[in-house]
């Protein structure tokens, strides 16, 4: 991390970069730092709420769930492993699970955890690589042709199967599938 520092905010342990979300989570884990939490909250809670509303929640339920997701982040800060996921990905998975529970009212079977479990002290190089790859992926996503990007968004947020998307957009299922396949091919080399 160098050079591109964003705005900084003073907190008890001194400044952290305003977009270094992993550092915010460590601060919450180690110091119960409410200022760090407030910054994370201002960035992510409105996104989580938008995600839940796009998935079919009304505004009140989405608000309730977004607050729960952020509270879970506080309580589970010790579970976050920056070598395995970025903060955005981690929050996405918490919000996704909340969606399945609160909106779809189903269980979500989870895969077994890896036998070696999270490393005690994550390798800084792994953390950096993951952040760079994720940034490149975000960039690639932003540069997708609008038609492809919209279908990926619908698949993630609209809670529709490919055939339901076909029914709603009037596009043939084959077209939907090949657009999604093309989009994934473009994204794939960023998703190692």
């Amino acid at each position: 991390m160098n050079g591109t520092a964003g705005s900084e905010e003073l907190s008890r342990k001194g400044p952290i970069r305003s977009d270094d979300w992993a550092a915010h989570v460590s601060r919450i884990r180690d110091d119960k730092d409410q200022a760090a939490f407030a910054e994370l909250f201002r960035h992510f809670a409105p996104r989580v709420k938008a995600f839940l509303m796009k998935s079919g929640a009304d505004a009140a339920l989405a608000e309730e769930c977004a607050q729960e997701v952020m509270a879970t982040l506080w309580h589970k800060a010790h579970m976050f492993d920056p070598a395995r996921a970025t903060v955005a990905t981690w929050i996405f998975t918490i919000a996704r699970n909340r969606k399945i529970d609160a909106l779809r009212k189903q269980n979500r079977p989870e895969p077994e955890d890896l036998p070696w479990g999270p490393a005690a002290e994550p390798d800084q190089e792994d953390v950096l690589t993951l952040q760079q790859e994720t940034q490149a992926l975000g960039q690639a996503l932003a540069e997708l042709p609008p038609k492809q990007r919209e279908l990926i968004e619908r698949a993630y947020f609209g809670d529709l199967s490919h055939s339901e998307i076909a029914a709603e957009t009037g596009l043939p299922l084959g077209t939907i599938k090949s657009r999604i396949r093309l989009a994934l091919e473009r994204l794939r080399h960023e998703m190692k």
Binding site: P46, A50, K54, R84, F92
Partner: peptide, 19 residues
């Protein structure tokens, strides 16, 4: 893991709703 990462990128990219 890649699809979860894509989900995280979507969460960043796909707008926000006022709290």
């Amino acid at each position: 893991g890649s699809f979860d990462t894509l989900g995280g990128a979507m969460l960043e990219e796909c707008g926000s709703a006022e709290l």
